[in-house]
Design a binder for these strands. Structure first.
Lengths: 363, 363
DNA sequence: AAGCAGCGGGAATGCGCTTTCCCGGTCCAT
DNA sequence: ATGGACCGGGAAAGCGCATTCCCGCTGCTT
């Protein structure tokens, strides 16, 4: 038994398909109430479900929103995804998911696939990369997006405008002040600290990471500190862990406080800024594995304020980003192409125990 | 400039649309190489992207996999989603996401929406509820799923078979031995423990929660312990937190060790089993907020072994579930309806610091 | 009373693609 | 040399729906 069609419903109700269509989907013209009732009854006696593909073909619009993330299991992206999902629901559309691990080529492919499905809009959440190796990929991605826009698509971008986009038509960006917030974080950390700073960053060229690094350095400069060393590594927990191991060796070697037993706080406690929370957690785990304690032997701060990580101890100093709201804002308004432009969100520096000046153990 | 069509490509290449179709999409019949080349050239000079809706209509299949979760931002679901996404990629399909907060009505609607889009298969990940309030909703959900299957759809279910499904046709379930694993966890906890046990469960009727509770009680019985008290609460961090507060009051009242200052271990330390990790973390946070320490003042175990939570300290005893693999297995094989049946995964009890017998503080 | 706007309904067309069917031409076997 | 199998290509018929156009009707105006 194949799914029943509008025509079958119409026949059962004794009307034309046109009429059935008019009553079952919001049309400008509503047939008489008696007829309407008959059609409706026929429809659900047959368990009629409109074929969205056919509707889409006929109306050329699909009720789909494409979402591109690096990894849906990453809490940063899943929080954004939740916001996107919420917005989609309000527009009653469905979201189509693509994960790309940040590869421009995959992202291009995802955009093409969304375009093929005639998605009404697409949201691209992962941060772009400016590495020269990705130059070509980025250009192709931009071209694909431009074409999508020219064909009437709307694209929402979180973070930065797409590099190399030709026009503003149809682009809608949610601006996240990564740089400013990182600067503010640096300044706030600087007031109560005399030690050295070091930054655990993502791969060079990853825009979000670069922005946060730049901002942090600027904040340090504002506070009269010299630039921090920067360790480039993976943008995930593993990257953070590796960098953390490296730093642990460093601290052990001349922090003067290498052994867990020695209880005197290091005179010049290192202050680590990991460009995202997940990396910060990885780094913390690494330090801990080497017998170092946070914040006693090193202070550490992250970025994003991932919800799942809020119960982590020592509580992580970070910058709270309204991730879910960002997701919500990133999806272009359903109505009209007038929605292009930019919207800004803001975050909040949140200092917690992981960077407290006194390194004494407590609960 | 609207997106270009197959017909335009064909005209440019000087062939018929039929031929163009044959070369551009895998057809049994491949036209001659010269013609093929001409068509291909025309296609990408026009930047042709096939209209997936039209293709779907014509072939009646869509290359879509529907995924239903309670909340995509919940790490449990996002891990599964990653697996689903991986499998989808292998079948080169895209995944359509729906979040329902566990409401059977929403799930029914999601199934209908997927059916409307002619999704090739749908994966339903959230655990079903057996509450009487949901009785009707469940029945409707089952009916909708049955209809979907009858129309040729494949459904993959994680955890339990859908309650009330009429036939096995098209259902494919990934069995998660929640009950057995919970029993094993209980037994392993019991060997080194004399204290009282208590269970923080989800809402009554939530199948996954019920199974884990039942299993845990059985394991306790196997080890010669009396049944544990069960606290029903929300299936999320907040629920865990609330239950944790309640237990904290209890411990404070007669655990004899209410004040954080008193260092003597409680003689009868409570052992808490939260039916999932996120709840366990919430409960731990609650205890901690009351000056109680884990595992000194209470032992605590969770379930799932959520990746993001692995760096949590004290390391959480839990049952590791191969979430991503579960997601991967849940998507029905692309080929044929022969895939119906069940597949089983297994987990592993993982005892860590949060339930260590000696409650002494350490790193 | 004749004419016209307005309305409720149906017939027909097209959205972009796949696929069956058909047709002219080769190449082989008899 | 001739019939048939075979192959490369095109014409055309849908897939399921929205929508435009059209037609017959009622109710109003002058």
């Amino acid at each position: 038994m194949a799914a029943s069609t509008l025509t079958e419903v119409a026949r059962l109700a004794g009307v034309s398909p046109a009429t059935a269509s008019r009553v079952l989907n919001g049309s400008a013209r509503t047939p008489g109430p008696d007829i309407a009732e008959r059609v409706r009854r026929a429809a659900d006696s047959l368990g009629y479900i409109p074929n969205a593909q056919a509707q889409g073909l006929a109306k050329s619009s699909s009720g789909l929103i494409g979402l591109i993330v690096h990894d849906i299991a990453d809490p940063y992206f899943s929080a954004i995804a939740r916001g996107v999902q919420t917005a989609a629901r309000h527009q009653n559309k469905m979201v189509l998911l693509a994960t790309t691990a940040g590869s421009p080529a995959d992202e291009r492919a995802a955009v093409a696939a969304f375009a093929a499905r005639r998605a009404d809009s697409i949201v691209i959440a992962g941060s772009r990369s400016a590495r020269t190796a990705d130059r070509q990929g980025n250009a192709e991605l931009a071209a694909e997006l431009d074409r999508y826009c020219r064909n009437g698509g709307q694209v929402g971008v979180v973070g930065h405008a797409v590099v190399g986009a030709e026009s503003d038509e149809g682009y809608h960006v949610v601006e996240v002040p990564n740089e400013e917030l990182a600067a503010e974080l640096a300044r706030e950390l600087a007031v109560s600290r005399a030690g050295e700073f070091v930054i655990i960053a993502g791969p060079e060229g990853l825009l979000t990471s670069d922005d946060r690094v730049r901002g942090f350095q600027r904040g340090l400069a504002d506070a009269g500190f010299p630039p921090a060393d920067v360790l480039h590594t993976g943008f995930d927990r593993t990257g953070g862990y590796e960098a953390g191991m490296e730093l642990a060796a460093h601290i052990g070697a001349h922090g003067g406080n290498g052994e867990a037993g020695t209880d005197a706080p290091a005179p010049q406690r290192l202050c680590i800024f990991a460009v995202n929370d997940v990396m910060a957690i990885g780094a913390t785990a690494a330090l801990r594995s080497q017998g170092l304690r946070v914040p006693r032997d090193a202070a550490i701060a992250g970025f994003d304020d991932i919800e799942t990580l809020r119960d982590f101890r020592p509580a992580l100093s970070t910058v709270r980003l309204p991730l879910e709201e960002i997701g919500r804002l990133a999806v272009p308004a359903g109505s009209g192409p007038a929605a292009a432009g930019a919207v800004a969100v803001t975050g909040e520096v949140t200092l917690r125990r992981s960077t407290e000046p006194g390194g004494e153990p407590a609960s």
